[in-house]
Amino acid sequence: MADEDLLRSQAQELRRGTVVLACLMLLRQAQYGYALLETLNGAGIAVDGNTLYPLLRRLEKQGLLTSEWNTEESRPRKFYRVSAEGSRTGALLAREWEDLVTTVRRLIEENR
């Protein structure tokens, strides 16, 4: 039981940074919070609302996302989209991710 908890927390630690990268990729098209959460979970990136929503706000504060309220539908919703800087950062992070995957895969295969 304790082992399972340990494994889960280690896996969560591994996934932590990937949520930011996934958001920066997905938000090249504007989306609102709940729809983005569904897209992420559908794509296999497990994240909770109470983590994602504050994260979006922080990325906006950091200038990586911009936001706009859409009041055309029955419920006003805040739509997020990557800024020019967010797009650049996303591309750099994506390359970082590729390098990481290559390195870790080599490590795994060499020590199998």
């Binding site: 919070g33 709940y34 929503y53 706000r57 419920r75 919703r77 805040k78």
Partner: peptide, 12 residues
């Protein structure tokens, strides 16, 4: 934040 939380909770 209040507006946004209201909207996301209502959506969910």
């Amino acid at each position: 934040v209040a507006d946004e939380l209201h909207a996301t909770i209502a959506d969910t």
